[in-house]
């Protein structure tokens, strides 16, 4: 492979511009990796890398990837939150692995089916 330089970025600029403009509008899905001290120590950076690679190789131009801090559930890290425009509430996935990332993208991000077994909880308390 020949050596790449920063100038090579200009080559991917045009092809990216069209797709990215779409992304800068409201994306369809937002994936947030929790990147607090607890998350980082539990492997959150590798999860971020895995999410970015999946989004890139599958060409998911309507998915926004970002990170946030500690949510106070340090023992459940690494954590990943998925929000889609047509769902009422964000879904928090816990104890994330690279395998789980693939499954969450296949099922939740692409088909809208929450992967319940990886989620923190389903529903919330009911009061009478």
């Amino acid at each position: 492979m020949s050596k790449i330089t920063i100038d090579d970025l200009a080559k991917i600029r045009e092809q990216t511009r069209r797709q990215t403009t779409l992304r800068q509008g409201a994306g369809r899905v937002k994936m947030t990796v929790h990147m607090g001290t607890c998350g980082i120590a539990a492997g959150a950076r590798d999860i971020m890398t895995a999410v970015l690679k999946e989004v890139e190789t599958r060409g998911l131009h309507d998915v926004i990837v970002t990170n946030s801090g500690c949510a106070g559930l340090c023992s459940q890290e690494p954590m990943l939150t998925v929000e889609t425009v047509d769902e009422p509430a964000p879904v928090k996935y816990v104890l994330i692995t690279q395998e789980k990332v693939k499954k969450i993208i296949d099922s939740h991000v692409l088909q809208g089916n929450v992967v319940k077994e990886f989620a923190l909880a389903v529903g919330s308390e009911r009061t009478r």
Binding site: L9, I12, R13, Q15, T16, R17, Q19, T20, R23, Q24, L52, V55, E56, L60, I64, V65, T66
Partner: peptide, 9 residues
């Protein structure tokens, strides 16, 4: 182009 496009990253 935003820096957080998967291709740029």
């Amino acid at each position: 182009v935003s820096l957080n496009s998967a291709e740029t990253l």
